[in-house]
Amino acid sequence: MAASAKAVEEDDGKLPLKGVRVLDMTRVLAGPYCTQILGDLGAEVIKVDAPVRGDDTRAWGPPYAPYSKESGLTGPGESAYYLSVNRNKKSLALSFQHPSGVAALHKLLPTIDILVENYLPNTLAKYNLDYATLSALNPKLIYASITGYGQTGPYAPRAGYDVMVEAEMGLMHITGSRGGPAVKVGVAVTDLTTGLYTSNAIMAALLARARTGRGQHIDAALSDCQVATLSNLASSSLVSGERDSGRWGTAHPSIVPYRAFPTKDGEFLVGGGNDRLFGILCEGLGKGEWAGDERFRTNAERVANRVVLEGMIEEITRGRTTQEWLEA
């Protein structure tokens, strides 16, 4: 038994954040997703919930995971939404609007490595839970703030939700069918990418602290992260000086063929990302000669002749079922 217990206690390095303690003062998605990543990597995450109600997403259902009989709790259960971003966490219910709640957090603070919050800028200052106050109590504290529009600037006081930022910062403009209306992405991708960016920034701050002995304040914003993830589309507009051409459905503005094509009973997706793959695709379609056609020899030529090539491919793909093409 002693040898077994010792083996459990030994750090095998598979959880790189083991021994790191995180105070999670976030709600909904971007913040909880960030702290869940830290927990998955071994950190001890303590989620601060408001008494009685807790995180808004506890009520976002159905579906709900039913409470066990042993819990003694009644009601529909815990929402699937809440559970999706709050695993590997301990829970602490307190109100920092009450002096005793703030005192409890201040008492806990010397043991905390990372604090993540997603309140409007300056909201926590009136409770003495802002970075300036807490870093004076614990200079090694890494304090990450997640907001819609950042800690400074004209939009800083605004609340920000995923779908609003998708619309404002270009994502909905490029999402949807060609010629159709703008649509939001099926999952709250702006929240999720912000959570990823913030967790990455926290990792960098941990490395900086190991070198300097000091923590820092991380300012993460949904708007910033959404603009960053426009990536090559934003770069294309900046380089060309032209307005983005809008929505492409499953197609790609710079690669042809690269979209879904109709079959007898549905669709399947083709991606010919380079000349070699285009040649393989031509062979698979029974049209090997297309690879040598002067209209299609390079990707630039295929993009210029997009309508012609996609029409030729479509004529062939309609001849089989989706499953037949997948097995071809």
Score class of each variant (00 low, 15 high):
residue 93 A to I: 00
residue 264 K to D: 13
residue 254 S to M: 15
residue 258 Y to E: 14
residue 231 S to L: 01
residue 226 Q to G: 00
residue 74 T to L: 06
residue 254 S to K: 12
residue 28 V to E: 05
residue 40 D to W: 00
residue 65 A to E: 11
residue 301 E to G: 02
residue 228 A to L: 10
residue 151 Q to T: 00
residue 106 H to P: 04
residue 100 S to Y: 05
residue 308 V to A: 03
residue 252 H to M: 05
residue 40 D to R: 02
residue 243 R to P: 06
residue 245 S to V: 12
residue 70 E to T: 13
residue 125 A to F: 07
residue 158 R to L: 13
residue 215 G to C: 01
residue 21 R to F: 14
residue 71 S to G: 07
residue 156 A to F: 01
residue 282 C to Y: 09
residue 312 M to V: 02
residue 167 A to D: 14
residue 205 A to W: 06
residue 90 K to L: 07
residue 315 E to I: 06
residue 77 G to C: 04
residue 284 G to P: 03
residue 285 L to R: 02
residue 47 K to T: 07
residue 180 G to R: 08
residue 124 L to D: 09
residue 237 S to C: 11
residue 78 E to N: 07
residue 42 G to L: 09
residue 214 R to W: 00
residue 111 T to Y: 01
residue 262 P to C: 13
residue 256 V to S: 07
residue 187 V to D: 04
residue 68 S to R: 12
residue 158 R to T: 04
residue 278 F to H: 12
residue 203 M to S: 09
residue 73 L to A: 14
residue 169 M to R: 10
residue 326 L to A: 11
residue 86 N to A: 05
residue 225 C to N: 12
residue 291 A to D: 06
residue 73 L to C: 08
residue 232 N to M: 12
residue 110 P to W: 00
residue 79 S to F: 06
residue 66 P to K: 09
residue 178 R to M: 09
residue 9 E to H: 03
residue 7 A to H: 04
residue 297 R to V: 14
residue 319 G to H: 04
residue 123 T to M: 07
residue 159 A to E: 08
residue 233 L to P: 04
residue 181 P to I: 08
residue 114 I to W: 00
residue 209 R to Y: 11
residue 288 G to E: 04
residue 57 T to E: 12
residue 213 G to D: 05
residue 276 R to Q: 15
residue 36 Q to T: 15
residue 229 T to M: 12
residue 177 S to D: 10
